[in-house]
Design a protein around this nucleic acid. Sequence first.
DNA 1: CGAAATCCAACACCGTGTCGTATGTTTTCA
DNA 2: TGAAAACATACGACACGGTGTTGGATTTCG
Lengths: 192, 192
Amino acid sequence: MAKRTTITAHTKQNLIDAFWVLYCQKPLAQITVKEIVTRAGYNRSTFYEYFPDVAAVLSAIEDALIPTIDTLPPFVGESYSIGMPIAQFLQLYQQNAKFYLVLLGENGDPAFVTKLKNSIKPTVLHFYHEHATYDAVQREVVVEFILSALIGVMSYWFRQQQPLPQEQLLALMHQLMTKGVMPAIDGSNTTV
Amino acid sequence: MAKRTTITAHTKQNLIDAFWVLYCQKPLAQITVKEIVTRAGYNRSTFYEYFPDVAAVLSAIEDALIPTIDTLPPFVGESYSIGMPIAQFLQLYQQNAKFYLVLLGENGDPAFVTKLKNSIKPTVLHFYHEHATYDAVQREVVVEFILSALIGVMSYWFRQQQPLPQEQLLALMHQLMTKGVMPAIDGSNTTV
DNA sequence: CGAAATCCAACACCGTGTCGTATGTTTTCA
DNA sequence: TGAAAACATACGACACGGTGTTGGATTTCG
């Protein structure tokens, strides 16, 4: 008999949804299978038909979130680029803000940051490879610098509920990336 | 009666040490009290005399690691500064590399990153407050940018077992901070 | 109908957190 | 000074709750 894929997928999604509600509230270590199934309305055993343990649910969510970088819709509008378009990343972030905010937050998963960085890294790395300014080792550092700053600022921006208009954030970010973090003395940057 | 502080402190430290060995190997959720006390050579109940739960041990380690920023020995030598001396932070990081590497790594604690940022933030924020270039909201973003990049690069550098001489890392970092991440076209930065 | 997919009840095991107790050390005062 | 009270420290045992598995009940679809 063919798998009843609809039902299966539905059940799995119910479990994932229930897990997510809990994960938004407390760290992984405090989430039990029982809580998940109670909330989703299943028997505890059913959980094990779909996931080996609680951590696997998180992993599944993360994996579904990572490949999105490939399937990004082309960004339209002013495009600030520093190897990887900042605006494009912001858009990616915005689409999944609900998840990114938690996964990159206080009770989040450090491993997800790594996964995220690794998925973007090749694009940025390739850009710098074409410029002979940095050697291979330095390039890696530069890329780590960019990605850390990018993800850090994005997370902060969302955490603070977007205290700056998106356009201003993009402009500021672009300036920090291309001109550095020292405030310009000549005043040419005060219009950001 | 006076506490037998020597014995107490010793036992507590034994428990912390045992915990740390385990935490270097696996995530918090997989560490049990039993494992800790077995390794440290105590009864399981003894653990609860010192900590309410496993997470508290991690918390204790983190707290002991944070204030170090205040008690930093004055840095001697070339001092790159971008509000907060980069070299000084590198030194702090280097002193506790063993811990930072794990806490900021794959199985690390996202909350620690926040704690760390918050402890350094005032210093950097104060620096930018004196320059009128950015308004209050922008300043926060700039500081988040700096701290994220700083911590990200440091972690990467240690994780890769310091692939670049310290002096070169400092110079590169300083350049990225002050001049941006775009490789200079005029070639003046190729000597980093 | 019957086979396979889906879901569930029950079981044995393990970890948790607590309480009462044994042991040994420090302090007190006769 | 030295015995005993007072207390810090460590432990054994208990009740509870979560885990992961096994075998079976129920449902669905060819």
